[in-house]
Design a protein around this nucleic acid. Structure first.
Lengths: 264, 264
DNA sequence: TTAACCGTTCGCATATCACGAACACTGTTC
DNA sequence: GAACAGTGTTCGTGATATGCGAACGGTTAA
């Protein structure tokens, strides 16, 4: 049950991945700049860039190398193959229409939260929040979707994730105590939805519900988020939870329907 | 002026790229399946997958490996960094509203056409066309955007691209003769826009205009496409060309404005 | 029970990659 | 106008990381 005997990995591939990430972070770079950034020699860095370019993963304009549109292609392909997007995008759009707020569809990968799809409702606010959610990947313990997912994991995996990443404090409201988090997750399981009360960003609240497979594995979670001023009272405690859980259930139904027809 | 002395390239990186592409094509795969597909040994294939997984580029569910959401992140990052998207997305949306048809924003990379952004107008039709445009990358010589771009390239680059890829026939209307293409490109330059008259897909016409930098380099092209039945007469010969050129000009202005302010 | 599949691990031989030094080119500086 | 400090690029070499095959552990089917 333990997948820990770290398998043999290829340094050359690892370095290639770091080159790609660095190009993204820097928004394109020259050979020398990249070499410094990665701690590689200029000549080696050049070889990596030349290879990625030959494979059309990277383009060169003038003397700077950038990630190519191949990544956009791969990204949309990944999204379209993802169960949550295939069976959830329409429902997410509907929910954004209904609530008028920001709606997110997230999945967990490698113990971190990844954005699958997001839609801004008519009254959706929060340029800052929007930008924050643009992050590569983020921790699970301070978002409504993250907590909704964590609450569904078997304790073994939960603990391994917490061990690996810890409970980083993002705002003063972030839960940083392990026992408090366990209590919180218990409440999430009881209520069927999770809440983010300014734990990720000051002034922003969110309500999230997990999307669970028919075999009980979590696929991810749906959330609605908005300003604290608006997210209050009956809306925050009843209407939104109901709406979010409803959407999650619709998506679950779509997923299960499709997997049922697939096995005919 | 010749960049041809093919530089030294890293086989390990090339193979990693092929693994990624194969995972995309197959929509996820097991070790043995991938090894067969790539002509590598099982053990080597495993090492590649293990490395890509460690770098969080790949996820493993059960016994099948799939591309991770990292690619979606990288893809949207690439799009948001792309000049055409930054300064063109709004205009493209406006054009889709105005015409009610399918609108595309494309760029050339490595001599092929890459989709940057697309918006479906209200009456937009063509599921097939839509799917076709989902392609990884396509040739330049049979699309309106592709021809608009080709018409702006210096003859050296143009010839190198044609030498590399040839004039593949996609439909019976595709231009497969070099001289005829040169004539066509000359007309494109004279009129300021390019036409695709069922050269890519039967029954689909399109009008495209290039987006050119202030130093004269092509950034890409805009197009409007739709069914032959509707794309006819005054609309096809005057209104749409005017609209498409207008949009291209707006995007050019945005791009130049931004590069002007940047150099202060 | 056996057999035929998986995915994974490991040792070994060899091909591959990292480095530094040199090159070509550009723009700057004095 | 010449020397210089920056680029990006090429190439030879030695150290080592990688590819392979064989074997292992597991699951499913016969």
């Amino acid at each position: 049950m333990n997948d820990d005997h770290s398998p043999r990995t290829l340094e050359t591939v690892t370095r290639a991945c770091r080159v790609i990430e660095a190009l993204e972070e820097l928004g394109g770079a020259g050979v020398t700049e990249l070499a410094d950034h990665l701690g590689l020699s200029k000549s080696s860095t050049h070889s990596y860039l030349a290879t990625l370019r030959e494979q059309q993963f990277v383009v060169k304009s003038g003397d700077t190398y950038e990630l190519g549109l191949e990544f956009l292609y791969l990204g949309t392909a990944v999204r379209h193959n993802h169960d949550l997007y295939r069976h959830g995008s329409e429902e997410i759009e509907r929910l954004a229409d209904e609530t008028g707020e920001y709606v997110h569809l997230m999945a967990e990968q490698h113990g971190l939260e990844r954005n699958v799809y997001k839609v801004a409702g008519e009254n959706a606010v929060g340029a800052e929040y929007h930008a924050r959610k643009q992050q590569r990947a983020d921790y699970l313990h301070f978002s409504s979707t993250g907590k909704a997912v964590l609450a569904q994991l078997e304790t073994g995996r939960l603990e391994r994730i917490l061990d690996q990443y810890g409970l980083v404090e993002r705002t003063e409201h972030t839960i940083t105590d392990r026992e408090r988090l366990y209590d919180e997750l218990q409440r999430v399981r009881e209520r069927g939805y999770a809440v983010n009360d300014e734990e990720e960003i000051q002034g922003i609240r969110a309500v999230g519900a997990p999307v669970v497979d028919s075999d009980g594995t979590v696929l991810g979670a749906v959330s609605v988020s908005g300003p604290k001023s608006r997210f209050d009272g009956e809306l925050f405690n009843e209407e939104l939870p109901e709406a979010v859980i409803g959407s999650a259930n619709v998506i679950e139904a779509n997923v299960n329907m499709s997997s049922a027809t697939r096995s005919l």
